[in-house]
Nucleic acid binder design. Structure first.
Lengths: 218, 218
DNA sequence: GTCTATATGGTGATAGAC
DNA sequence: GTCTATCACCATATAGAC
């Protein structure tokens, strides 16, 4: 990975050698547009314009706008799962593993904020937008994957309470609060073009630290 | 306040005796629709339908859909400011006041989640949606009010660091993390029709406690 | 595989009757 | 103050040329 990352953070691989790069290119641009203006306010024409083509190309790869949205959402979830996987495999007491997971998640939210912004929009895109049975099925799978992701954190919180490295607290509410604290960054964080990986890691640390240690001194 | 609150949480006063109740009725329904489907996906026709009237009525009170959105947003911010005001006036060390502010904010986010969901949408509704100069001016004021609100928390965090009741931490990032932790509830919280005020207060406590004390035992 | 042209439907907003 | 009727526009999606 290069030391300096641009505003189009970690796009899916677009190198023309790889098969599927055309689709990846569309997904990346759709993610950017959906983040900037929101799914419903973004027209397929706009995505095409910014790709320097017409919507004919997009409709060659995607049957509908919502199917394109689904691919962006799927990609966003994939990045989230991949990010916390190494942390979940580390050995250590319950809190240490949870800390590692939170750090990995914070970094992923910053690095992929374009995609994760779109994932958050998925919460209020529902049955009304998915017309075919296939689309409703896909939507259900994406919702399931979001729940599964939160489940990993709930399980780890429960484990850490069990091994007494965590205070006793409401597992479900705490998971939502912790994830929300990091995920809210979709609203305020935008990558500076010249931002280094080290700077981003430092920001993630500043985000996670108050959650682990709390606010109270002593 | 009644002990049991319905799903239409604390609507603005609609009693037909008060002047402006027609507008308030429209604002409340718009907030509900915008929350459920999002601003852009909601049609003026839909708001009117659910009010049992036609959009002729709405356009009698509002020049455009975005102006209606602005009123919902304004109302949402008003509720937030009013909620933390008493907490800000309490006496006590820096952390005690901050704790009171966070509890008040958490309760307000739950109580008014319909309106606060719309406020969050305001982040990505921008110049493109505001066409007239008047609308751009209004938008600027709403953005300013969001910043001012966050500023209250930043100031209090700084004060608490100064009086040494808080660890030394990044004021700006910590403010965003704390507020985000509570505000993310717009995505997962929906009022149960039979939910009591006491239950909601208990939920707010479960949200704020891990932030104050941190996760680490000891 | 990509383009142009177009069908089709919905949405914001207005005019004018009542 | 509210309704009906309608206009103008824009967006999704398709058909067929190249």
């Amino acid at each position: 990975m290069p030391d300096v990352v641009g505003p189009r953070n970690t796009p899916t691989d677009q190198s023309p050698r790889k098969k599927g790069w055309r689709k990846a290119e569309i997904i990346d641009m759709a993610a950017l547009c959906f983040m900037e203006r929101g799914y419903h306010a973004t027209s397929v024409d706009e995505v095409a314009d910014r790709l320097g083509c017409t919507k004919g190309r997009i409709y060659h790869y995607y049957a509908s706008k919502i199917d394109l949205f689904f691919d962006v959402h799927r990609e966003g979830m994939k990045k989230l799962f991949e990010a916390i996987e190494p942390a979940m495999k580390t050995t250590g007491d319950g809190l240490t593993v949870l800390h590692a997971m939170l750090m990995a998640h914070a970094k992923a939210m910053l690095e992929h904020h374009t995609f994760e912004n779109v994932v958050a929009q998925g919460v209020q895109i529902h049955r009304f937008d998915a017309t075919t049975e296939d689309q409703r099925q896909t939507m259900k799978l994406l919702i399931d994957s979001r729940d599964r992701f939160e489940g990993f954190f709930k399980d780890q919180i429960a484990a850490a309470i069990a091994d007494k490295t965590l205070r006793d607290m409401d597992v479900s509410v705490t998971a939502k609060v912790l994830l929300g604290a990091l995920q809210w960054s979709i609203f305020w964080y935008r990558a500076r073009p010249d931002e280094t990986v080290a700077e981003r890691e430092e920001l993630a640390r500043k985000m996670v630290e108050p959650l682990i240690d709390g606010l109270r001194r002593n």
